[in-house]
């Protein structure tokens, strides 16, 4: 156990805990956009910025990636932090003016409008990389990744056309905080819409009740991964004995 101070509160935390986790355990609010317990921290959104003081030196760190240390003094809401967070949220607002999660955070941080020019008002992707992380770490497929540098950065499948690795599970759409990736089942087809492409996958029909209940590719993947009999997935969950 290490002892540290967050916003004047003396806190004990297990070694290997991040500042963000320690703060949240004690009901101290730090805004985040790219954190999800399902995947490892990544430090993309920078909203979780906090000020740490060590040996009388102050610096700003991303609390989702910074581990607790003995004697560390942490401030989660100084004037300097408010200024920088405000700037980040303004940039995010200009990038994704229609993203609900961004709007909510801006409201909570007291930012009403962005001083920056909106380039594409329909852009919903904040590049938090939750989708690529969940695909890699949880699903284990890495069907999508972040491509291109700098201002051209975006989520994409390889070559923008190769969806071989995608099993249509929809984890990316589920975890996306801003609905930049959408999932829709229409009849016998699952449609996954990403900012730059639209993917279609066949759904398996239950021979008993006729519902299209799961993507064929996902079932094949599960059968292979768990080494189970394909018979398990003959019927939909509702029709199984």
């Amino acid at each position: 156990m290490v002892t540290l101070t967050i916003d004047g509160q003396r806190i004990q935390a297990e070694e290997g805990t991040t500042l963000l986790e320690a703060a949240r355990d004690h009901n101290i609010y730090i805004p985040t956009l790219c954190v999800n317990e399902a995947v490892s921290p990544y430090g993309a959104c920078r909203l979780c910025l906090v000020e740490v003081t060590k040996k009388e030196r102050q610096r700003l760190v991303a609390s989702c990636l910074y581990f607790v240390e003995e004697g560390l003094i942490v401030r989660t809401d100084s004037e300097r932090i408010a200024l920088i967070r405000g700037m980040i949220i303004e940039l995010l607002l200009a990038r994704c003016p229609k993203a609900g999660e961004v709007q909510e955070l801006a409201k909570r941080l007291g930012v009403r409008e962005s001083r920056f020019r909106v380039e594409d008002e329909n852009n919903l992707c904040v590049l938090c990389a939750l989708c690529t992380r969940v695909c890699q770490e949880v699903v284990g497929q890495s069907a999508i990744s972040l491509v291109n540098p700098g201002t051209d950065r975006e989520v994409a499948i390889p070559f923008y056309d190769n969806s071989d690795a995608c099993i249509a599970c929809g984890s990316c759409a589920y975890i996306c905080p801003t609905e930049a990736i959408k999932l829709e089942d229409v009849g016998d087809t699952r449609i996954i819409t990403m900012p730059n492409c639209r993917l279609e996958f066949k759904l398996k029909q239950c021979p008993k009740c006729g519902t299209y209940w799961a993507p064929e590719k996902q079932l094949e993947y599960m059968i292979k991964k768990a080494n189970i009999s394909p018979k398990v997935f003959d019927l939909c969950p509702d029709c199984r004995e």
Partner: peptide, 25 residues
């Protein structure tokens, strides 16, 4: 394209990862 596919197979690294690196630099 074929070279990236081959690198991905040979290295057992997901194609999306290879493509990400190849487009980054």
């Amino acid at each position: 394209r074929e070279a990236l596919l081959k690198v991905s197979q040979g290295m057992e690294v997901p194609l999306s990862r290879v493509y990400s690196v190849a487009t980054f630099f």
